[in-house]
Amino acid sequence: MFAKGLGWVLLMGLTLQNVQAREYHYSDAHLHYVDFFQESEGMDALLKAMDEARIDQSMISGIPVAKKWHEDEPKRPRYYAGDDADAYWYSATDIYVAAALQKLTPAQRQRFHPFLTGFNPVDKNAVAHIERMLELHPGLWQGIGEVFTRHDDLTALTSGDTPRANNEAMTRIYHLAAEQDLPVLIHSNITSKRERNPLYLAEIEEPLRNHPHTRFIWAHAGTSMEIHRHQTQLDFLLPTLSRMLQDYPNLYIDLSWSVLQPYLLDDKGKPREQWLRLVERFPERFMLGSDVVGKFGSLGEQMHGFDVFLDALPEDVGRKVARDNFLAVLPRPRE
């Protein structure tokens, strides 16, 4: 009788644990309101997708380039890599984001944290454009980015010089970001598709070292799906991130979709122990991003895909990564 009663107690305990399984609320640290043709499903679709996915807050930005439909192409491309036509820097993307936000109710608008992205990062005039946009919409912009520097084939397709995270134009922007207390979300690939070493690491590490008062969010931790197609995994990524997070307290990591696999999860979908330990070691320096572009149907899938990794972390750390860390990196409220 005692054994039967003990078994019932254990069963009830397991049932209670299942009932109390973690349910996360999220902040999306990396979302593009428009796609590479500057088109969007609109705010109604975005808000609906956020509500369904329990995304309370979201970074929102445009796309800094537009894909050209070339005269010689009979069919419009569906993505920037759809054909060999150029992409070009497109400043009006910030206007689209600002206009969409201005149509929202005050309560809806408070869920969004707009970042400026419509500038050419190799143009030393870019900082003047950012200053004008800050004056045109006072109090609206809460960050800069996603800045496209080293970005797979998009770099070769984009008209003009190759953008680098450590060029003089970006140096001016980092100074402004520090003055205005704005974080900078930057896409800077750590290597190329074929080099099995951190070929471009100096391009992101130099700004981190030279601008200690600027908060940097490194998109995808320097990785990309295109790199993964050619190299599967970068063996040097984990030790490199560990060193950089130790050396640079102004570095934050955006764990958007291209980091989930093959890094955070193994081939069987189980969390990798070394990555769990890294996040536990720096519990306030990682955040989640969907990186959706103009279409929002996959928003929940992208964010909930991290749940198995979050569940393997201590609960307080999991909730920080899911929601709180992105909000903490935003500008401090001004009097």
Rank of each mutant, 00 (worst) to 15 (best):
T15Y: 15
P207T: 06
L238V: 06
G145A: 07
K68G: 08
Y88K: 03
A328T: 08
G62S: 03
L176N: 02
D267Y: 14
H30F: 07
Y252M: 05
E315H: 10
P314N: 09
T117I: 11
Q231G: 11
N120C: 12
P183W: 02
M244G: 09
Q231E: 12
V9T: 05
M59E: 11
A29R: 11
K193D: 15
A45E: 04
F216R: 05
H151T: 00
M43K: 07
Y33C: 04
T223C: 11
F282Q: 00
K75F: 15
P314D: 09
I55V: 12
M303Y: 00
T105H: 04
N120Q: 09
A156D: 14
G13W: 07
A328L: 12
L278M: 07
A29C: 01
L16M: 13
L116W: 02
D51M: 10
V279W: 07
L237T: 06
E39G: 10
A128T: 13
D307P: 00
Q38W: 12
Y248E: 08
H175A: 11
H32R: 08
A53Y: 09
D35P: 03
T171H: 14
W8N: 12
E335Q: 11
F148L: 15
A178L: 05
D266Q: 07
Q38N: 10
L136R: 13
R272N: 05
N167W: 03
L31P: 06
L11P: 03
H32N: 09
D72Q: 11
R209E: 13
Q246Y: 04
L154D: 02
I173P: 04
H129R: 13
G13V: 01
L134R: 01
L14V: 15
H175M: 12
D307V: 01
R150T: 02
A53Q: 03
S258E: 12
R281H: 11
S290E: 04
L201G: 03
D291K: 08
E301W: 14
A66G: 11
N120T: 06
Q261M: 14
E273Q: 14
H70D: 14
A312T: 00
S242K: 15
P262L: 10
Q20N: 10
L157V: 01
Y33T: 00
A29K: 08
S188W: 02
T93G: 08
L140W: 01
H32E: 02
D123V: 04
M43S: 04
A49Q: 10
Q38K: 08
P198T: 05
I144T: 00
R132Y: 08
G82D: 05
I55W: 01
L276G: 08
I253N: 12
D94G: 01
T214K: 07
W8Y: 11
E73S: 10
S188K: 00
G139F: 02
A99Q: 10
Y174M: 06
E206K: 14
R109Q: 10
E195V: 13
Y88G: 01
W69Y: 00
K67G: 02
V293C: 15
L237D: 08
H175C: 06
I60V: 07
D316C: 00
E146M: 09
A312P: 07
L245I: 04
W69E: 05
G318S: 05
Y80M: 06
A312N: 07
